[in-house]
Design a protein around this nucleic acid. Structure first.
Lengths: 200, 200
DNA sequence: CTCTAGTGGAGCATGACTGTTCCATTAGAG
DNA sequence: CTCTAATGGAACAGTCATGCTCCACTAGAG
């Protein structure tokens, strides 16, 4: 690789990275947008959406699988950072869960990608072991201990419900023209009621 | 059509229908099974799963779109009949909703088909106007009037939550090896809590 | 049994997407 | 300005699902 020689110069790296990183980002963003709506979209569609030529896309991701792998990593990272922003270990469990739901909701298309591309989830490192997953499980167990979350709902089911309710919320905006604010409101309200510990 | 001539004879019709209906059913069932798991499966895959040749499949459904249309009609009919079995207009709204959820849950792969094939929903006659939809909306409005369902949740949102929770339940069994009984239990419990009218 | 509807396999043409190469052009660092 | 990395377009071969035709075979009605 002649590139390694050039990379001896620091400033050259940065500049190179800057341009390449920008293009790479554009392609990944376009992939998220396009694939979240039509999971079988062609690479040409992604390239168009990214505003780059198909040739360029192939330079960054030689095969479709390479793009999906990168997408998977990217999505996972974004979900994890969203989970981290929610500070899942702070305050009462129901509040923390609500913060987490809010942060996930903000992910938008990234969220929908996870649903429309199941094969994207079943690969790579996030075999139910991502940081976000772990944080959520910790959170639910804490809620059980606190007595603030329904003990009849195990962590994994809470996780399922969280994600499916988020899906419902986004579908609600997409198909019924409901505002994002209203959808999030319904989503949070519903989730709170589901996980709440029964008074009796 | 020479077939019209033959159809003058009643018994001939029945016999013809019997064989053809059986094959048609097998293809549709296979399509439900296959497409619910891999939405982009080829027609060859469907034919294999149905135990028929690809040629035969093409005889019944000349184009892929024809199969999907028939599938859409079939799925809609099954959902409607499930909704009817649930007797949505009988008894307290929360109970009726639970019956509806149970009946839908039993649909199994048919259910998952609706999620993995969004284009299947957006076509044909069920433009949010299927009998099942109408029954559900009636049910929720009745619950609002009764004071047994949360008035803050409009019918369409309840519908979204119902379906997404069913999805969550089936995913729960598929990915985490949870028994159908346990999944349904969690599903019903969660749904009840969501839609319950707040005491205050 | 006979005869036909129903079926399945082989084969073919088509179109779409993919992965690749080559070349001309452009943006940007120095 | 100069020069290189980066890009975009055109073209090509390979693969796969599709839609279709033809023909041989079989089950089942009569």
């Amino acid at each position: 690789m002649s590139k390694l020689c050039v990379m001896a110069d620091r400033s050259t790296i940065d500049v190179e990275s800057r341009a390449r990183a920008r293009t790479r980002r554009a392609i990944l963003d376009a992939a998220i947008t396009v694939l979240s709506q039509h999971s079988t979209a062609s690479l040409g569609d992604v390239a168009d959406a990214a505003g780059v030529g198909r040739t360029t896309l192939h330079r960054y991701f030689p095969e479709r699988a390479d793009l999906l792998t990168a997408l998977s990593t990217d999505v996972l990272a974004r979900i994890d950072s969203a989970a981290e922003r929610a500070q899942p270990d702070r305050g009462p469990a129901p509040d923390a869960l609500e913060r987490m739901c809010q942060e996930f909701f903000e992910l938008g298309d990234i969220l929908m990608c996870v649903f429309s591309q199941p094969e994207l989830v079943n690969t790579t490192a996030w075999e139910e072991c991502s940081e976000a997953d772990k944080a959520l499980i910790r959170l639910v167990e804490r809620g059980h201990a606190e007595g603030t979350l329904d003990p009849a709902l195990d962590p994994i089911w809470v996780q399922q419900v969280l994600w499916s309710t988020l899906y419902a919320a986004w579908q609600h905006t997409r198909e019924h023209g409901v505002s994002k604010h209203r959808a999030l409101d319904l989503c949070l309200r519903s989730l709170r009621k589901v996980v709440a510990a029964v008074p009796g």
